[in-house]
């Protein structure tokens, strides 16, 4: 079953003097359990696509169906709630609340979901263990490296038991060791927990780890390859 479906999805930015067609009639299906990279040159529309399927931005035209729901016409408040229960996000940087510890950052999302304290605590600790940061649970973001922060962000994205995780260039600010570390963790969680991951990247090493690679150019899908 497709967890994400777009039909003739277009996005036009009218901000500046010329209208920019960031996405042009994109048809895309992503199935549950995928580990998919969106690639393409700068300005090709990767971020725009992730934002729209993540319910953060509106499409100019076309339809977006996420987890069986048409999200194109939801109000902002409904979208916030929808995101909370269905989507995990890992942004490029500054993902975490600076005044909370790693553990609190992970628990925070479950608090929003009104999970009880014991469950929050146990899941946060098991996720921090899964991303290899059990010993850093009490550290604040400023006391952790960029790679560690991104791992906490992955743990947080999974904490809410989302239908899928969207990660826009999650490794862009990381060195190669941290990059492969984060990819290992994501790949393992994808396999062990069956979590669907969709991430954008420029990095060839990251592309190599993806099982499906969708390439965008000027808002069009120019190739879509699934490895055997």
């Amino acid at each position: 079953m497709s967890v994400i479906k777009t039909h003739q999805l277009s996005k036009i930015y009218n901000g500046s003097a010329v209208a920019v067609h960031a996405l042009n009639k994109v048809d895309l299906h992503i199935e549950e359990g995928e580990f998919t990279a969106i690639v393409g040159p700068s300005g090709s529309g990767k971020t725009t696509l992730l934002n729209i399927i993540g319910g953060l931005d509106n499409a100019t035209s076309g339809d977006v169906e996420v987890a069986g729901k048409d999200i194109t016409r939801m109000s902002e408040n409904d979208l916030i709630d929808f995101r909370l229960h269905n989507i995990g996000f890992v942004f490029q940087a500054y993902n975490l609340i600076p005044v909370l510890t790693a553990q609190e950052n992970v628990e925070f999302i479950m608090l929003m979901q009104k999970r009880d304290k014991k469950e929050r605590h146990e899941r946060a600790m098991s996720l921090l263990k899964a991303v290899g940061l059990e010993s850093q649970a009490d550290k604040r973001p400023s006391q952790m490296s960029g790679g560690q922060q991104q791992r906490v962000a992955v743990a947080r994205a999974l904490a809410s038991r989302p239908r899928f995780v969207l990660a826009d260039e999650p490794t862009a600010n990381l060195d190669s060791v941290s990059t492969s570390n984060l990819l290992d963790i994501m790949a393992r969680l994808n396999q062990e927990e069956g979590t669907t991951f969709v991430f954008s990247t420029h990095d060839q090493r990251v592309i190599d780890r993806a099982r499906r690679v969708i390439t965008l150019e000027d808002g069009h899908i120019v190739s879509d390859e699934t490895k055997a």
Partner: peptide, 16 residues
């Protein structure tokens, strides 16, 4: 600003 963007993106109610 950025933090408000992140926390509402991941599902924190604006009212809260």
């Amino acid at each position: 600003r950025r933090e408000f963007g992140v926390v509402t993106a991941v599902g924190m109610k604006r009212r809260l």
